[in-house]
Design a protein around this nucleic acid. Sequence first.
DNA 1: AAGGGAATTCAACGAGCGTAGAATTCAACA
DNA 2: TGTTGAATTCTACGCTCGTTGAATTCCCTT
Lengths: 208, 208
Amino acid sequence: MTPPARNARSRTGRRSGDSGSKAAILEAARAQFADYGYDGATIRAIAAAAGVDPALVHHFYGSKERLFAASMELPIVPSEAITAALARREPGSSLGTHMVRSALALWEGADMRDSFQAMLRSALTSEQAATTLRDFLTDAILAPVSRVAAGPDPDGASFRASLVAVHMLGLAVSRYVLRIGPVAQASQDELAAAIGPAIDRYLTGDIG
Amino acid sequence: MTPPARNARSRTGRRSGDSGSKAAILEAARAQFADYGYDGATIRAIAAAAGVDPALVHHFYGSKERLFAASMELPIVPSEAITAALARREPGSSLGTHMVRSALALWEGADMRDSFQAMLRSALTSEQAATTLRDFLTDAILAPVSRVAAGPDPDGASFRASLVAVHMLGLAVSRYVLRIGPVAQASQDELAAAIGPAIDRYLTGDIG
DNA sequence: AAGGGAATTCAACGAGCGTAGAATTCAACA
DNA sequence: TGTTGAATTCTACGCTCGTTGAATTCCCTT
């Protein structure tokens, strides 16, 4: 419809050969991967959303696989965000409650939203993305969480961290992918209050 | 490899025109949908796995969509199984623990295994299958669970049931789709002991 | 003004998909 | 045995996909 404002770029301080298409492609890729998963998203649709020829996408990124990797690259450094959130806990709420609220805020923030849901949907679709997410969970979640989980027992700590991941993953899938009514409509605080104590128990409580 | 034993049927008491191909196709469809999701599974691969021409699949089921519906049809009556499991609780374990153990046993039983994982993977892939699973969760899970959830408050009961669904869904995705190490390797009893109390709290405990 | 390199588009190939209809085999029955 | 209807296969259409290489446009540098 709208002739996508070609050459609408101007003096935005880009380096020599830059035109802004690369960034637009990445943005469109994140959105498409978020909505349709890795397999469902098409280079042609991504190119169309970015107002660009499909061949240009291929010219920049070489393959769909590498485009996916590139579109997931930057945002996947929230291990710091997690560690920070774990430390920044306020006195009023439990650690688990704070984790749930922080995670929801992070996932639904403008920065992460597309990337996270793209990663989530894609991981459930493609084996490659599943491996990526599995590794990410291991490195970025299980490790920092294990550090605060109770007990000197390393096996126990990784089991505890996995249970946390299980619950958080269920929350994400229910709220963003399946959109199960009450879970999709509840506020971040409601969910944090309801789920937080379960996380607390996985972190430091008595688990079978 | 193995030339799939064509015409290996014999006197198995089938009705006039029956040949067994329809059943073989359904079985192959379930397996393929389980491994690759709705979009990832192809009629051609299903036909090949069933040792049959793709056109025959189309001849019997008319479309991929209807084949999917047919392959999911029979096994999706576990609402009775759930209700029964809820009633059959033994004195030794809590209701939540019993629910988790029953669910794992059901999901991993020979009857359900393929169908359940097919439904799970497909729901995460295709919007149509997601709707199917959402409706299924609502009818078959939330309703019976709401009945045993605490309080006369109907809203509260459906929120409680949703939280149960969130956790069980996370368990299923972690164990079967992403195969997160500790969760994939743990025994049914270990998981039941660890997760059961969280389910108990969602059913009858204090949730924010 | 000219050159050159990056950005971008054009047109097309080859593969896989779901689906369709005609043709063929098969098995039961008159 | 000949017929009939179901089961099954053959062939192919139309579509979309990722990818490719050549052609073209753009814009900075000299």
